[in-house]
Design a protein around this nucleic acid. Structure first.
Lengths: 334, 334
DNA sequence: ACTCTGCGTGGAAGCGCTCCCATATGGAAC
DNA sequence: GTTCCATATGGGAGCGCTTCCACGCAGAGT
């Protein structure tokens, strides 16, 4: 019993009574095919239930039909941030337009990183979208050497790639801080993220800008790791160092939620004693108690635009970095 | 200026002074290669910076080197559930062992579903892992016809596939409910999920079993959509219908968090007036206030074992469904 | 009549790899 | 010295597709 192989293009051509060339052209909508042959091929395809073999096509066209989202970093749990889920939803929707499939590479270990490198060098993917890359990431040189387009989702700290999509982190940080000042807060501090992330740096920069504009000296920030627990710990340290703090800007919602918990644990009322602003506007912001004032960033759009830029490049088009706007959403913590 | 093509296996063979066959065998660790030729090939590979072309290999071996995670369902935001992120982390780690790459298919639209079907029929992936499939999902027949192994992550409601990995949802539901009864709760109700998910059904089943064992009649459950907001709404309805409810089992942590919020809004003390138990043991459970008593399920393991089962099948091995245990984690809401 | 277009067509050469199979090689066994 | 086996080797035929190119054959232009 020979293994049943699916029909090939040859079978289709034979059935339609044309050559393989014509069948191929008919399938790909090439111009030089007469009306009736095109129809004959179409019919044969239907009758045989033919579906072109992706792999063969990939070899012949030198295109794999996939784009890869690469998430680097030692700790795979950063991926658990709901932020990524939203980005992926946007990404996926946009790639669908371009009929590309999404490959997801969680490059946590040395081995994982080697696999990403191999994927690129083995022509296994048509384009790469690295996300949340930190300064000094060992994959950075790999991306630089890649022969396929690389569009960064979020500017990596300390480098300026040719193509990236980002949100206006500095602007958001400014908005958040200005809001705290406008609420009459005098001792405004920040819970920032790891110093090797551009996200943390840019939000800090905006924070300092707003303070400078108001003629204030910035207070040294505490740092968390963008997790709820990290935010809570940072808030505790902050309270110890600056017991009279009355305004806090946390660099993301997770950490803001943690800060909120720590503030409650310390007996502070929010927003009575302390005003709190987050960043992201994910679900948590809406559902924590009290609901979090935060900087909205268009997360799905970030994914969508990153993918679109990649599609443009793959289509031979030009592209330049894109910065998406943020906006303040005032809720109950300020 | 001809486009610079990467070196091929032929180039490696030529440089090493062997035939392409020997080079191929040397590369793939086949046995019949002499020590020195193997070494010569290895050296040539290094000198040329050769990396085998994935696509060519895929065509020749009839293997694409990828496995696909398919998440079906109209609403792409179900993907935002941190549950999936953890599953993916497990999945990804296991696939890495088998040197497979992960493709992620968010099949939300009709078009997305067609693409998944095409992906399968075009031999674009070596195996499929559908997750969170609901009863009557239009992709179910596609999976059934697939020529590659399909391992379900979580049993789809209303069907019994040959291969799947799931957690003991019924057992977890029983544990949760028994715990509420053991805490002396007399009016124990459930906030369940959509009736077309096996997860909701099984957790309900366990819930009813526990009540039956205790000689109690089950109360009709409220249903949410597994989101925080859905849980809050369900809790409000429950309070209206059964003002004297004193024990609630929510089918997941998101909904439990929402229920908690609704209970607070209604002026109920948790666990004073009402005991609350969730399911999942995700981050939220640890960080909400008060910390949530919940049923722990091994989410990463679910991903890991699903991928492993697929790897086993791809390796020609046998496999049977696998059920992972759950355990109760008592915190402060009960 | 002639060439000049231009479209349709199919033959055939890849794309870069794997793997079957026929052949070569060196001993060990007789 | 022959026979036989185990191990190494390279030729070559695929894998299923795209695409270049040469060719035939209309109808339009001179």
């Amino acid at each position: 019993m020979a293994e049943q192989r699916p029909p090939t293009l040859d079978a289709v051509a034979a059935r339609a009574g044309v050559s393989r060339s014509v069948a191929s052209r008919a399938l790909n909508g090439a111009p030089n095919v007469s009306r009736d042959k095109r129809e004959a091929v179409r019919r044969a395809v239907r009758e045989l239930g033919y579906v072109p073999d992706t792999r063969a096509r990939a070899l012949a066209t030198r295109r794999s039909g996939t784009a890869s989202l690469v998430i680097s970093g030692e700790d795979p749990s950063i991926f658990a941030d709901p932020f990524f889920a939203q980005v992926i939803v946007g990404l996926s929707a946009a790639l669908e337009e371009g009929d590309l499939h999404l490959m997801l590479c969680l490059a946590a270990s040395e081995r994982g990183r080697r696999r990403v490198e191999e994927l690129l060098r083995s022509r296994g993917t048509d384009g790469v979208m690295p996300m949340a890359v930190r300064e000094g990431d060992p994959l950075l040189p790999v991306f630089a050497k890649a022969e396929v387009p690389v569009v960064f989702g979020g500017l990596p700290a300390g480098s300026s790639p040719r193509w990236y999509v980002d949100v206006d982190n500095a602007g958001g940080g400014r908005q958040a801080t200005e809001h705290l000042l406008a609420r009459g807060r005098r001792r405004v501090a920040m819970i920032s993220g790891p110093a090797d992330t551009e996200v943390a740096r840019a939000r800090e920069r905006g924070h300092r800008e707003a303070l400078a504009l108001a003629g204030r000296e910035p207070l040294a920030p505490e740092r968390g790791d963008f997790t709820e627990a990290g935010g809570a710990a940072a808030m505790s340290r902050l309270l110890e160092r600056l017991p009279d703090v009355d305004g806090v800007f946390a660099a993301n919602d997770n950490m803001a939620a943690g800060a909120l918990r720590a503030l409650h644990a310390a007996g502070r009322d929010v927003p009575g004693d302390v005003s709190l602003v987050g960043f992201d506007d994910l679900d948590t912001a809406r559902t924590c108690e009290p609901a979090l004032t935060t900087v909205h960033q268009p997360v799905r759009a970030l994914g969508r635009e990153t993918a679109r830029m990649l599609l443009t490049l793959l289509g031979g088009g030009e592209a330049t970095p894109l910065i998406l706007p943020t906006s303040l959403v005032v809720r109950s913590t300020s």
